[in-house]
């Protein structure tokens, strides 16, 4: 045990607050559009692991980023995806889980040619 605690059995009483089992069948997925820091940070969603990646793109990714003027210029076929630390090409009809999106995974994407308002990464 790394923490210096008053009680020797501290470890027995840890309340892990964010276990996947606490999210009622969902898992937490983080999403971030690179080079577009108008969106101040990655955004978080509770999603069913069985959700197809394609549905995730349509129902989650697009509606939450469409306020940005670059949004309409996105060529979705060119988008570069990274799930956790790995660049990959997601299989759209397969589920988040099958595409390697686990509890608290981070999905980042790059839109080649688009780097924010006047190229400022905003």
């Amino acid at each position: 045990m790394s923490v210096v605690a008053l009680t020797p059995d501290y470890e027995k009483h840890i309340e892990f607050r964010d276990l996947e089992s606490n999210f009622h069948g969902n898992r937490v997925v983080y999403l971030h559009w690179e080079q577009h820091l108008s969106f101040c940070s990655a955004i978080a969603f509770p999603l069913p692991p069985s959700m197809p990646f394609g549905a995730f793109v349509e129902a989650i990714v697009k509606p939450h980023y469409n306020a940005h003027p670059d949004f309409e210029k996105i060529d979705w076929a060119q988008v570069v995806w990274m799930i956790d630390d790995e660049k990959r090409t997601p299989e759209m009809e397969k589920s988040l889980d099958e595409n390697g999106v686990k509890h608290k995974s981070l999905v980042r994407f790059w839109t080649p040619g688009l780097s924010g308002y006047k190229g400022s990464a905003s």
């Binding site: 045990m1 790394s2 923490v3 210096v4 605690a5 501290y10 470890e11 840890i14 309340e15 892990f16 607050r17 964010d18 937490v28 978080a44």
Partner: peptide, 14 residues
């Protein structure tokens, strides 16, 4: 340094 403590954080979003 103290994962046992911070794993218990009450994160508002979660």
């Amino acid at each position: 340094a103290e994962p046992e403590k911070f794993a218990q954080a009450w994160l508002p979003v979660h």
